[in-house]
Nucleic acid binder design. Structure first.
Lengths: 203, 203, 203, 203
DNA sequence: GATGAATGAGCGTTCATTCAT
DNA sequence: AATGAATGAACGCTCATTCAT
């Protein structure tokens, strides 16, 4: 006899998911463990049973993204071919990842802008991409100066990430929902245009 | 009998400045009114005497930036001449403003990524710039699609703002301090290069 | 117009008194700040407003005893005359002090037997008496060995303090209430007999 | 197939031993069942399986001491001969018992000074000794007054027990470790001297 | 204007205990 | 006999806010 139609997902996973949601919605500090437990429909003490503290819970949430991030970008990282192709591939992979993990950019920017405490965790998540871009651009750009790879890392990642974090703020000024499929496709096209424009200019 | 010749800075202003600092350092939620009062060296109750609540205090902090922002950009907004000149002017004005208000980008991104509660306040601060770019680009870009003004707004503002917010996180991977005068000049050059590259491509 | 007949004792003092009572009754660990606040008829948060933490509250309770202890013994400490007289004086002073501070012995023994955490606080309270006995006995006893002053310190202080802490436990086996005036007088006579007996033997 | 030849110590006994240790170290209230289970290397729920509650666990710990106590003192209790010999015998037996059960005095004093809740348990442990002394002293002392047997019970037991409980506190003021073999021998000599002195005086 | 005192609600965390397996 | 999961109550402590002076 089936106990329940909804096959009660693993409890720890449900808490993690709830933490991800709540922290993503209101930020780490404003997210209370009680909120998270309520969202996960578990007893508050159980959160501490599985994850020992609130900071550790955050760590585990980020760890999950770190892994997902790495997996999502693996193919693009491994891809060979022209620099142009590789950049376009990566841009697509990155957009795909965020489209599938809508809370990720907000979480990252929240932690980045919430004091030094969480910077180490964030670095871990950003470093692979930073290093990939540095390697990919390689000889195409100078090692230092205003066209150095690191400048492009900030510009590119800002162009992607900020689109998502600012979306809800811009919704009013925008003609339409910036997170609709149509708008996302438009943004993606803009980013690809930007990649091409930069590469043409560097050539 | 005059207690002091040096006219002790206006109390409300000192509280506002302290609020700006503390919130900028640890974020709105983690900043306690007690911390702010201590930083301003005033009694905790006095914070509520001048600003009625913590949210209102935040409003006033943002309002101060709104004004400063408007003033700082006024000349660039009013400037006439070629589109190229006007964009370069604005970019410089924006960088100057942030260089003089280092806590501003972090505060904005913190609030953007801390839940819908604060979005209205942020919108007020961003809208003027959004409208200026839309007007300035005018006929140079299509009204919609991946080259619409709004796309450039996100790309430009992200390229400026994220540089500052990610600076402390990137410091390790960076060769040097991203907020040194030298690094800032490099970033400024990168942004100008980006403006020129975009305009050339649009032509 | 008189606000109240009961002249509402200073709040901090009321909390301190309540802490003393509650901790004295059930021990430090079992005494909750909520209990203490309730006993003092104040808001729980107020306990932290005046004393910053539970450990600090305990410190202040002990500090109060340290002072009272010192004052109560001052005359006996200062007294000159024969060793015999001085010891009898001190014994009386000590009994008087404890009779007036009935919770003191239980508190001390509780902290002594509750792990190393509190030993420093206790040492501070015991040291003066230890040093006084060492000095007072002086040449009357050898510097080391089974008749050294330190041996008498333990024997004397145990004979006084244990009487009070064991009183409630012994009540059943005892013929009468060990804390009645009559019983206390009997104990006091026993202690003086002990002093005389020891001195005679040492002579 | 036998998992182990060395018949792993009975689980319940291991829990009891762990409870003894942990409670002896930090006191009953500060000792958590989780700590005890961890120390015994068993599952927390198992503690409740064998001992139904935390108070019952304490009871069993004390019961163990009651038995050990009785056994250790049995010979001295049964011994015949002069009062002087019997008292010296008992003093030695008591010191031997505590030297072999170092946590016992701290536990007893902790419970004595931790509220009335535990007094019944303690009485059970103390009564045999109380009655033995009363009987042993018999006609040598008056039935009541400051030389009654009960006075000597408190003085003797305090002189023994307090030495052990105050040892860690006194270590600083002491010239050496009060629990070293040498120091313990010294204390023992002091106690025997005290017995002789008292008997001589009573004669 | 400015302060110290006071409060109720909520925080993250730990507790002894229970239960299904 | 033994375990991992689960829970409600309580813990010490901090919070934004109010109020009398």
């Amino acid at each position: 006899m089936a106990r329940s139609m909804a096959p009660k997902q693993d409890t720890a996973a449900r808490i993690l998911e709830a933490a991800d949601e709540v922290i993503g919605e209101v930020g780490y500090d404003a997210a209370s463990v009680a909120d998270i437990a309520a969202r996960a429909q578990v007893n508050k003490a159980l959160v501490f049973y599985y994850f020992n503290s609130k900071p550790e819970l955050l760590e585990r949430v980020l760890e999950r993204y770190y892994t997902a991030h790495a997996e999502a970008l693996a193919a693009a990282v491994a891809s060979t071919g022209s620099l142009r192709d590789r950049l376009h591939n990566m841009m697509d992979a990155y957009m795909d990842f965020i489209a599938a993990n809508r809370r990720y950019p907000r979480l990252v920017q929240h932690l980045v802008s919430s004091g030094d405490v969480h910077h180490v965790l964030i670095q871990r998540n950003l470093r692979p991409l930073f290093e990939w871009i540095t390697n990919a651009l390689g000889d195409a750009v100078p090692a230092s100066g205003h066209l150095a790879a690191r400048q492009f890392f900030v510009t590119f990642s800002g162009a992607v990430i900020n689109y998502f974090t600012y979306a809800p703020v811009l919704e009013n000024m925008w003609g339409e929902d910036p997170l609709s499929d149509h708008s996302l496709a438009e943004r993606r096209a803009h980013l690809h245009w930007m990649v091409d424009t930069f590469l043409d200019a560097l050539a």
